[in-house]
Amino acid sequence: MQILSFSGVTKCFQRHARSMLLRERLAKSLRSAPREPFYALRNVSFAVEDGESLGIIGRNGAGKSTLLNIATGLCPPDEGEVHLSGRVAALLELGSGFHPDLTGAENVRINAAMLGLTRRQVHERFDAIVEFSGVAAFINEPLRTYSSGMMMRLAFSVAVNVEPDILIIDEVLSVGDQDFAAKCLERILRLRRAGKTLICVSHSLQTLGDLCDRGLWLDHGQVMNTGPMRQVIDAYASSTIHQPAAP
């Protein structure tokens, strides 16, 4: 069963520079030629089956984050169709909703609620979340007293304890020291073994090689290669070797 499918998805962004106020809008509409929009995605089509794991790679600006944003419903495509079924936990950013004046415990609750946990689930998993993060001793201190590493570990700990059908991760895998990173990887692999679907964007080809069985290579908004992860990684890696160095 297809969990996620994109068919012919195109997304372009208008250039907005300075058009948030009414007078700028009027000035813009009176101007003769509209500016060329920026195409973030062009005619992208792919599908992810239930239980598969897809790794998305590409250079900066290729459209990977836009693809994930469209998949999770944050912005609609201009053309094409997107179908997503199942419960999603999207980790597009760590620590959404975190506020420095609130305690670690309060921040965990709000972040968990945002990621879709119900009241009872938060109550049940709270201790496990705090335990996993390793900041139990400081959980009732305001977040602004935490180091950035502690914050990241807490955020990641909430995220891995949400057990969704589909886990979507955008470049947030490299978090914490080796021990913690190993714990996180193990937890994600556990989700994979339980048959959950994973869609992952990362620049770390090694991590993607470990985690994902299929890959998708995006460049300038278009699909360059798709297939087994190894194959896509090789194709991507060999293309970047031949790029001329930036002046």
Partner: peptide, 25 residues
């Protein structure tokens, strides 16, 4: 597509705003 407890989230957001506003006063 988002499945979660809307009321729980609402409650958390309201409490969060309230706490932020008054905690440092």
């Amino acid at each position: 597509m988002w499945r979660g407890d809307s009321l729980f989230l609402l409650e958390n957001l309201v409490l969060r705003d309230f706490r932020i506003r008054y905690r440092n006063m």
